[in-house]
Computed example of a mutant assay.
Amino acid sequence: MMRSLFTAATGMESQQITIDTISNNLANVNTTAFKRSRANFHDLLYQTLRAPGQSSTAGTVVPSGIQIGAGSKVSSVEKMFNEGAIRITNKPTDLMIEGEGFFRIQKDDGSIAYTRDGSFRIDNTGRIVTSDGFPLVPVITVPERVPHNKIHIGMDGNVSARIADQTEELGQILLANFVNPTGLDAQGRNLFGATPASGAPIVAEPNTQGFGRIGQGELEGSNVNIVEEMVNMISGQRAYEINSKVIQTGDQMLQQTNNIR
Rank of each mutant, 00 (worst) to 15 (best):
L170E: 11
N40K: 12
G212N: 02
F81E: 07
V139W: 07
F134A: 09
G53V: 05
M230N: 08
S111Q: 12
G101T: 04
A51P: 05
L174A: 06
G210L: 04
G188T: 07
G69R: 08
R127E: 14
K73R: 11
R213T: 12
I163N: 10
T57A: 14
K79N: 13
S119E: 15
T93N: 07
L170H: 07
D109N: 14
N82T: 15
S222H: 04
Q255M: 10
N25D: 06
E228F: 05
T89Q: 05
E98G: 07
T208L: 01
Q16E: 13
T195F: 01
M253N: 09
N190P: 05
G53T: 08
F102H: 08
G188E: 07
L170Q: 08
D123I: 02
M233V: 10
A113V: 11
H42L: 12
M96E: 05
E241R: 06
D132A: 13
I97H: 01
A33E: 00
H148V: 14
N149T: 11
S14M: 04
E100H: 10
K245V: 05
S23H: 01
S198Y: 04
V74H: 03
N30Y: 05
V224W: 04
N158R: 11
Q209Y: 11
V142H: 01
T182L: 03
T182D: 15
M253V: 15
P138Y: 06
A8I: 06
E241N: 09
A161H: 00
M96R: 12
P52H: 01
F192A: 00
S76P: 03
S56L: 13
N90A: 09
T7G: 06
I97T: 03
